[in-house]
Nucleic acid binder design. Structure first.
Lengths: 102, 102
DNA sequence: CCCACACATTCCTTGTCGGTTATATTACCG
DNA sequence: CGGTAATATAACCGACAAGGAATGTGTGGG
């Protein structure tokens, strides 16, 4: 059972989520957008399903996938103690540049 | 050249960053905390170095590693469109507070 | 000097991941 | 019913990542 971090390590899986963020999609819809074969797409969707990042519902012959973003909270939570650390540095650089003579 | 996401997919590498968040550490310090052999630690530290997530400075025979959190901004940026999606309507207040500037 | 300590690197092995091709399943439609 | 479209699964393969053991490097101490 891979972690959410491991699932998100795959660029195309992140892209799939980005597409699904705009709304429900069938597998073929996703295949038309994300550069991956249909079986490959099914495999990625299976990983995303088992990670709880997408949900699926049947619609006639198609299966419509939709985003299920709850597991992203884990990533967000891990990242939180670091939040602001990189912006602090940028702010410090800005202040430093402001203080520099032309 | 692995992406930041791929680097963070390794649980021990996240743990290394968590330890370094408390301050500079030598390799031996990290080996004493993170369950990995010394060569394994050096290898993980190399990955983190090449990803720009840690920096190193020499101190006598030791090498002191410190956190360099800038690449985490990439993860934060990807996650941002999803922020608030995983919280329920009951957490609307918290979401609102999250979105408030500090 | 040479030794010892701290760390890095190499080599090898192994397991896992992602891709492709081919095949199975499932649901609809005529 | 039979056929077809949509999706899933299976079987196979190449690439790569991680671990361990042994070795290399380099810096400071006696």
């Amino acid at each position: 059972m891979p972690t959410t971090f491991e699932v998100l390590a795959e660029p195309r899986r992140r892209q799939i989520l980005d597409v699904l963020r705009t709304g429900e999609c069938s597998v073929n819809d996703l295949v038309a957008i994300v550069p991956v074969s249909q079986p490959g797409m099914s495999k990625h969707l299976k990983v995303l399903r088992e990670a709880g990042l997408v949900q699926v519902r049947q619609d006639a012959q198609r299966r419509l996938y939709r985003l299920s973003p709850e597991p992203l909270a884990e990533v967000h939570a891990w990242l939180e103690p670091y939040r602001g650390m990189w912006t602090d540095r940028l702010d410090a650089l800005e202040r430093h540049l402001d203080e520099m003579p032309d």
